[in-house]
């Protein structure tokens, strides 16, 4: 049984159809990349998985159970953490407080256990220690991204969803974020990754899907997708390069 299975998902924003037919599978332990141009429907797909949008048709199944109709709170309790596009860190709270709030899906956790887990997660990102008590609006894009991933991991998810983690980051920082993603998978968390930076995403992913105007148009193992001429032309701009 796959960890996550989307079957024939159809979703609309008001009267405008955003996804017309999206099916994909994420197996436990994989890194799967979801690629596509701006406006293709990547973010809508992720928002549907985490319950922020309801599908008109189709199903989202997690460990064999349907998630359709569940609230975002219930879905994160089921084991899916979604790190949204643009980080969305609570700007009036400190880095540490943001990380701690990641455990909000487990209300029975004691304060002590929560602090201990936050230390453990933060160990993945030694940088965080230097700005742990800084209010988030003062942090840079790269620092925010680390806080966002740490906050996502605090939910102890089985599946971590990352929406454009490289957005607006300098190349060096992007490299660092991607190294962390690989490390997260090595520690046993499955990752579903949406990226504009397709080369980068395919360099760490096991498999990939390509979305175009609300439809999956291509899928396959990452290495093969990286060599696919049509994809290169459409998303990587390599035809002239």
């Amino acid at each position: 049984m796959p960890l996550l299975k989307l079957s024939h998902l159809r979703v609309s924003h008001g009267r405008v159809e955003a996804l017309s037919d999206v099916s994909l599978v994420v197996e436990a332990g994989e890194i799967v990349a979801l690629l596509g141009a701006n406006g293709a429907g990547k973010t809508t797909t992720l928002r549907t998985i985490s319950g922020l949008m309801r599908p008109d048709a189709g199903d989202v199944a997690f460990e064999g159970r349907s998630l359709v109709g569940l609230s975002p709170e219930m879905i994160v309790r089921a084991g899916i953490a979604h790190v949204p596009e643009g980080r969305r860190i609570f700007s009036g709270l400190t880095a540490r407080e943001n990380v701690l709030l990641g455990a909000a899906n487990r209300p029975n956790l004691s304060r002590h256990a929560r602090e201990a887990e936050a230390d453990e997660v933060s160990a993945l990102f030694p940088e965080i220690a230097s700005f742990r008590d800084t209010l988030a609006w003062k942090l840079s894009g790269g620092q925010l991204q680390m806080v966002a991933v740490a906050r996502g991991l605090m939910a102890k998810p089985k599946l971590l969803i990352l929406d454009e983690p490289s957005l607006g980051l300098a190349p060096l920082i992007i490299q660092r974020v991607f190294d962390i993603i690989v490390e997260i998978r090595r520690r046993g968390t499955t990752v579903l990754l949406v990226e504009q930076n397709a080369n980068m995403a395919l360099s760490i992913a096991d498999r990939g899907y390509v979305l175009e105007t609300g439809r999956i148009v291509t899928s396959g193992c990452a290495a093969a997708l990286g060599k696919n001429e049509a994809i290169k032309a459409a998303y990587l701009g390599q035809r002239a390069a």
Partner: peptide
Amino acid sequence: QDKETASLIGIPV
């Protein structure tokens, strides 16, 4: 500060 993200991390908004 951000209702949508709050619900995304499991806060019962």
